[in-house]
């Protein structure tokens, strides 16, 4: 290897990773930028003022809807996924392989056909075009990730700590609060963040079940792309990507960063 080769690659990798964000930032900060100028003719905050101004009420509304849907989905997903992860991580039982395959399926099978299949049923149950409907369909795809994260957590967990606590006089409630919760906290946070991000990025299933009534951020972003307003689309894209970067920073800081691989 030539001596300049290694440092060149070291710089090339971050460059390639940052590349897509450059046009997003540039466009969101441009007031006028006609072809074929290399940079905006007029820089400005028009797009950002629009997003956070009265004209952009729709965008703020969709941001709030996204936060609402993703937060509720994440909480539900962790609450339901943790007991299942505990069962899979701590015990051997008949049918374990089958059950784990069942939990694996929503990860492999594309959301497309499930969302289409559920749609008709949700219409009959009056769940179509409602938040509950959208959260339920998101949950279908987020829950497996919670289960697999907590499965990993509980297979590195020694239940003897609970037995020790019980022999020292702890009640079941105290065991949950004082033993299980602290031991599994990093895992719970990862599972929650995964679920949040997955729900946050869902587009098609929201589109089909939400039917245009539930307009989360990705739905809004598609509409903006269709309207051709690049500065606003750029600004919304940046808002859309923020939670992802926050999650990454958080996991790098508190969890060693190796755990974000599971997010699709």
């Amino acid at each position: 290897m030539k001596p300049w080769f290694k440092p060149m690659i070291v710089w090339l990798i971050p460059l390639a990773i940052c590349l897509p964000f450059i046009p997003l930032v540039l466009w969101s900060l441009s007031d006028r930028w006609f072809y074929p100028a290399l940079g905006p003719q007029t820089w400005g905050l028009r797009a950002w003022l629009y997003v956070f101004g009265s004209a952009g009420a729709q965008i703020i509304a969709s941001l709030l809807q996204s936060i609402l849907v993703a937060t509720i989905t994440a909480f539900t997903s962790v609450i339901i996924g943790t007991p299942a992860g505990r069962a899979l991580g701590l015990y051997d039982f008949k049918g374990k392989d089958f059950i784990s395959l069942l939990f694996m399926l929503p990860v492999i099978v594309p959301p497309l056909c499930v969302a289409m299949g559920l749609h008709l049923w949700f219409i009959r149950l009056s769940l179509a075009e409602t938040y509950v409907g959208v959260i339920l369909v998101h949950l279908t795809f987020c829950l497996p990730y919670s289960i697999f994260v907590m499965w990993g957590v509980f297979s590195n967990y020694n239940p003897d700590y609970e037995h020790q606590a019980r022999s020292l006089g702890a009640s079941s409630g105290q065991i949950v609060l004082k033993i299980i919760l602290p031991f599994t906290m990093p895992g719970l946070i990862v599972a929650g963040l995964f679920s949040f991000l997955l729900s946050w990025s869902q587009y098609l299933s929201t589109l089909i079940i939400g039917g245009g009534r539930v307009t989360t951020l990705p739905i809004m972003l598609f509409a903006l792309m269709a309207s051709g307003d690049r500065p606003v689309a750029g600004a919304v894209s940046i808002i859309f990507v923020l939670p992802a970067l926050i999650v990454l920073l958080f996991s790098a800081r508190y969890l060693g960063g190796r755990s974000v691989v599971g997010v699709r």
Binding site: S237, L245, L248
Partner: peptide
Amino acid sequence: FIIQIPLTVPHLVIAVA
């Protein structure tokens, strides 16, 4: 750390980019 950035970024953002 940088190499992990794309892991959490939604596909849609990159498509827009």
